[in-house]
Amino acid sequence: MLSLALTADLQGVSNLQPQDTEEEPYYYTFKVLCSSCREEHPNWVSFSRYEKHDIPGSRGEANFVWKCKLCGKTHSASITAGPHAYQIPEDPKNKTQKIIELDCRGLEFTEFKADGDWEAKGAETPTAFSGIDLSEGEWYDYDEKAGEEVSVKDVKFEIRNIKVGTELIIRLKWGQTEYRGTLESIDSYMNVLLRDTEEYIDGKNTGSLGLVLIRCNNILWMASADGVEMTDLGLK
């Protein structure tokens, strides 16, 4: 699992995020690397979280499906959480915040390019800003209601691995079953070992399972628990 994280200096604005709706989706643009042969695709690839592509040889779907030309293996990735709005950091020494989370099967994203429009709101006013271009790493405008210039500067994107110890939610492909537990280990095929695991079926907690190994071909999607609204899953 990977997350796309953002660090920025916000002046006069907050709630910075991609303009991303089903009617006008945002296309996330990455450089992609095959985890099997370590070959990096020479071109940028783009996909939206609303795209659905069949995965060859599987009943599953993904936002992005890619066949490596060097080793011939087919890999996939899906956005499992987000986009989250970037807020003015409470701690100026810790400015990095997650924007999206990705479930990657057999591939890695190594670099992100901020193509497309972003949006934000006035930090102290209801002013809405759209069409924000972050491709140059900075943006300036004027908030008439506040009577001052606003800006987004020192924009930096980072792709991070979800670390051992992260609390995850995993949904299986059948039975309306979810597992919630702490990541103990994960391999390149996305086989996951969870500890302190709780099982939910049809939104109801059925008890604690302890240490659980979940094979990759059983997983519909997974995301860190703090990136998923439990009410969206129906978990209680």
Results as ranks from 00 to 15, higher is better:
Met1Gln: 06
Leu2Asn: 09
Leu2Cys: 02
Leu6Met: 03
Ala8Val: 06
Ala8Glu: 03
Leu10Pro: 03
Gly12Gln: 01
Val13Pro: 10
Ser14Lys: 00
Asn15Pro: 01
Leu16Gly: 10
Gln17Glu: 14
Gln17Tyr: 13
Pro18Ser: 00
Asp20Ile: 13
Asp20Asn: 14
Thr21Phe: 01
Glu22Gly: 04
Glu23Ala: 08
Glu23Gln: 08
Glu24Thr: 13
Tyr26Asn: 07
Tyr27His: 03
Val32Gly: 07
Val32Asn: 04
Leu33Asp: 08
Leu33Gly: 04
Cys37Lys: 07
Arg38Met: 11
Glu39Cys: 06
Glu39Ile: 12
Glu39Trp: 15
His41Ala: 14
Pro42Met: 09
Trp44Met: 00
Tyr50Thr: 05
Tyr50Glu: 04
Pro56Trp: 01
Ser58Ala: 11
Arg59Leu: 13
Gly60Val: 05
Phe64Gln: 02
Val65Asp: 04
Val65Tyr: 02
Trp66Phe: 06
Lys67Cys: 04
Cys68Lys: 02
Lys69Met: 03
Cys71Gln: 00
Gly72His: 08
Ala77Lys: 10
Ser78Gln: 03
Thr80Trp: 12
Ala81Pro: 01
Ala81Thr: 08
Gly82Gln: 04
His84Tyr: 11
Pro89Glu: 15
Asp91Met: 10
Pro92Lys: 14
Ile99Ser: 12
Cys104Lys: 05
Glu108Phe: 10
Glu111Ile: 09
Phe112Arg: 02
Phe112His: 12
Gly116Pro: 03
Gly116Ile: 08
Glu124Trp: 04
Glu124Thr: 15
Thr125Ile: 05
Phe129Tyr: 12
Ser130Thr: 11
Gly131Cys: 02
Asp133Glu: 11
Ser135Leu: 04
Ser135Lys: 07
Gly137Gln: 09
Glu138Arg: 06
Trp139Gln: 02
Tyr140Cys: 01
Tyr142Asp: 03
Asp143Cys: 11
Lys145Pro: 06
Lys145Tyr: 03
Ala146Val: 02
Gly147Asp: 05
Glu149Pro: 00
Val150Tyr: 02
Glu158Val: 11
Arg160Trp: 01
Arg160His: 00
Asn161Lys: 14
Lys163Thr: 05
Lys163Gly: 04
Lys163Glu: 09
Val164Ala: 14
Thr166Gln: 09
Leu168Ser: 11
Ile170Thr: 11
Ile170Trp: 10
Arg171Glu: 15
Leu172Cys: 12
Trp174Tyr: 15
Trp174Glu: 11
Gln176Asp: 14
Gln176Phe: 07
Gln176Met: 05
Gly181Tyr: 03
Thr182Ser: 01
Leu183Asn: 04
Ile186Leu: 14
Ile186Glu: 11
Asp187His: 15
Asp187Leu: 10
Met190Tyr: 09
Val192His: 02
Leu194Tyr: 02
Asp196Lys: 08
Glu199Ile: 12
Glu199Ser: 09
Gly203Lys: 06
Lys204His: 09
Lys204Trp: 08
Asn205Tyr: 03
Thr206Gly: 00
Gly207Val: 05
Leu209Val: 00
Ile214His: 06
Ile214Pro: 04
Ile214Cys: 05
Ile214Leu: 15
Arg215Met: 03
Cys216Thr: 15
Asn217Phe: 07
Ile219Asp: 09
Ala223Arg: 08
Ser224Glu: 12
Gly227Arg: 15
Met230Gln: 11
Met230Ser: 12
Asp232Tyr: 13
Asp232Trp: 15
Asp232Met: 13
